[in-house]
Design a protein around this nucleic acid. Structure first.
Length: 667
DNA sequence: ATAGGGTTAGCT
DNA sequence: AGCTAACCCTAT
């Protein structure tokens, strides 16, 4: 194919000119190609042909390829070993400081090689990696200068830049990797809070600087800010690959946003305030663009307090009646309702204070109805009394439904404590969904009188519409449980970012959540992994587990960890250790793997998943191609049930952290 | 179907 | 008032 032909010149030149370099570096960024190029060629006369065939087979037929490997492929084992040794020695030479940890490639083994294979050009991967894991920058119209620097010869390929969905494989890599070079790691200061680093990237980074006490943490060093490290690594890689590294990579690190001294938001804020002075409160609704839609915007340090006026409050109530409780933004958007630079959140908070009975009502619709009726009654009464007071001046205190009894939840229907308890299982059915809402006000013991049609007309004239019948059907919040998180992690391990698959995986029992819910949860819970597409920081889960240990306790998630060497295990190292930090450092885990037949780990991991025999799990989960496992290459990555023979092989592999499955992976 | 990002509930 | 996390919408 074209792609191969295009690449070849480059690769070959590398081989010729920088054989060592290729060995050392190539695996990092182009694990596959490096293998296919550097390894086989020397051994196989018709390397070129073999290579092509490999590529083809990779993308196309599994069986064919496997067999090929079985025969010719055998060399791969030795080749790998050789390559691994070479690399090891070289690397160790490079990174003297890290004797303990074998130098580790960045995108080694556990990277989603399969995915990589699909890409004709490794550059696509690189590019992606450099720019950030996924299409996060979608809206960032920055031209990718990177390709320019590289002068990639592959225009056509460009279109398919999108990396294949990160599979579990890629993801599993992670934390385990010791830095190739100590220099790559950001300095760890004493006391740095690892968990913070892991869980809260943005903050964590900040925390790093202030931290203290490292000591025991050589062990944990691999748990370090993966983000940074990776960036650094990539940085270095890039420089090594192409002399001219662009500097934009740093831009990709979006850690320190909040701490930026010169916060642009400050400016925006200033502008807004200036405008505020101009417009005063009289101004029509601030252009949506004007007001920060999301309170998230940083740099609002000096927010001024704006007391709620009666009018505002009344407007709020009207808005609630019109748009429904909870539709704060909709209320804000009502042209006829003026607010003083309020945000949706402000409305919510105000309403909560003003009409707690309604806000906390189990049935928002009913509450809205009551609110409506009450307001209407007050208005009517007021008008009947000849009060000129415009509706706007009503006191909210008047709006408390007569039947509302703050202290005794009994009386007011609106005050039901959380009644229904949304059966935890009923997923999609919206508890408050279709319920009643219609003739509620009239029915039951509501003292709130139903309004006559006449009254309604009157109300309408007063600007009070019929209550919004149903509040947007927003599902009630259901916090994720530890078990769910665990299942999510497992699902992630197995299916990667394919949330729907996770959701549908019966083994995981997450069907009651929506795929997006799962994704959201993962996104918030494991931001690192989500953003970097990499490992799940064990800590995240750990911390969580700690919170709810009892619940989950036993099954520490560690998906397949064991099976493939360290990487996954580490990646998921979450918890592994009942003994937290204590654990001996990385080497331990490493050694441990080597020592223990891989089996042990997997065993603990999957039980939950295994039940359903689907071989899928192992198969997916790991990298061991059936053929390989069955065949000559018994690396015992995971299954290698302690086969003695394998152990010998295994150790070297582990040390090298080469992914045994590199080639087979592709099955 | 997923990613990205906005909105809202709940808590402090 | 501020924050986090669950929920939602929409572009891709």
């Amino acid at each position: 194919m074209e792609s191969s032909s295009t690449l070849r010149p480059l690769d070959e030149s590398l081989l010729r000119e920088l054989p060592q370099l290729s060995l050392r570096i190539a695996p990092l960024r182009e694990p596959v190609s490096s293998r296919t190029l550097s390894v086989p060629s020397p051994l196989e006369p018709d390397a070129s042909g073999a290579r092509d065939s490999n590529n083809i087979s990779n993308s196309n037929s599994n069986s064919g390829k496997i067999q090929a490997n079985a025969k010719e492929g055998l060399p791969t084992v030795t080749e790998f070993l050789n390559a691994a040794r070479i690399r090891k020695t070289e690397l160790s030479a490079d990174s003297q400081s890290n004797v303990e940890r074998p130098p580790r490639p960045i995108l080694p083994a556990f990277v989603n090689l399969r995915a990589l294979e699909k890409f004709p050009f490794s550059s696509s991967f690189d590019d992606d990696a450099l720019q950030g894991p996924r299409k996060r920058r979608r809206r960032d119209p920055q031209p990718d200068s990177f390709s320019e620097h590289l002068q990639l010869p592959i225009p056509q390929a460009q279109k398919e830049q999108r990396p294949p969905p990160f599979g579990p494989f890629a993801i599993l890599n992670g934390l385990n990797e010791p830095p190739p070079n100590a220099a790559l790691l950001p300095p760890i200061e004493a006391g740095s809070n690892i968990s913070q680093l892991l869980n809260k990237p943005s903050r964590g980074d900040a925390a790093v600087d202030s931290g203290t006490s490292v000591s025991a943490h050589a062990a944990i060093s691999d748990d370090q800010p993966v983000e940074r490290r990776d960036t650094r690594l990539e940085d270095i890689l890039r420089t090594s690959l192409n002399a001219d590294g662009d500097h934009d990579q740093n831009d990709n690190v979006e850690n320190v946003q909040s701490t930026n001294p010169v916060d642009p938001d400050e400016i925006a804020l200033a502008v807004r305030e200036a405008e505020k002075l101009k417009d005063s409160k009289e101004s029509p609704l601030p252009p949506a663009a004007d007001a920060p839609m999301s309170p998230r915007t940083r740099g609002r340090s000096r927010k001024n307090l704006r007391k709620w006026s009666e009018e505002e409050t009344t407007n709020l109530l009207r808005g609630v009646i019109k748009c429904g409780i909870g539709n704060w933004t909709a209320i804000l958007a009502q042209p006829e309702l003026k607010f003083n630079q309020r945000t949706a959140s402000n409305l919510k908070d105000r309403f909560r204070v003003s009409c707690p009975w309604a806000y906390s009502a189990s049935d928002p619709d009913l509450a809205a109805k009551q609110l409506h009726d009450t307001l209407a009654n007050n208005l009517l009464k007021a008008s009947a009394e000849g009060s000129d007071e415009p509706p706007g001046n009503l006191h909210i205190s008047h709006l408390i439904p007569s039947n509302f009894e703050p202290n005794s939840g009994a009386g007011s229907p609106a005050c039901n404590p959380q009644e229904p308890s949304i059966s935890s299982t009923a997923p999609d059915t919206d508890p408050r969904g279709s319920t009643t809402t219609q003739s509620q006000s009239a029915s039951s013991g509501n003292s709130t009188p139903a309004l006559s049609s006449k009254s309604r007309t009157t109300l309408a004239s007063l600007g009070i519409p019929e209550p919004h019948v149903s509040r947007t059907k927003r599902r009630s919040r259901r916090p994720f449980t530890a078990a769910e998180d665990e299942a999510l992690l497992k699902g992630y391990a197995v299916h990667g970012f394919q949330w729907t698959l996770i959701q549908q995986d019966s083994r995981l029992n997450l069907s009651h959540r929506k795929a997006t819910d799962l994704r959201d949860r993962f996104r918030t819970k494991f931001p690192h992994a989500y953003r970097d597409g990499g490992s799940v920081s064990g800590k995240a889960l750990t911390s969580q587990n700690q919170a709810q240990e009892s619940a989950v306790g036993t099954s520490t998630p560690r998906p397949h960890a064991g099976n493939t060497e360290q990487s996954p295990s580490k990646a998921y190292a979450m918890t592994p250790t009942p003994t937290p930090a204590t654990t001996p450092r990385t080497s331990v885990s490493r050694s441990r793997h080597a020592a223990t037949p891989s089996q042990s780990n997997p065993a603990q991991i999957d039980p939950a998943l295994l039940p359903p025999p689907t071989q899928g799990f192992l198969e997916h989960s790991m990298y061991l191609p059936p053929a390989a496992a069955a065949g000559a290459l018994s690396f015992s990555l995971d299954d290698g049930p302690g086969t003695g023979a394998s152990s010998a092989v295994e150790t070297p592999w582990e040390d090298n952290t080469l992914a045994p499955m590199i080639w087979d992976e592709l099955t």
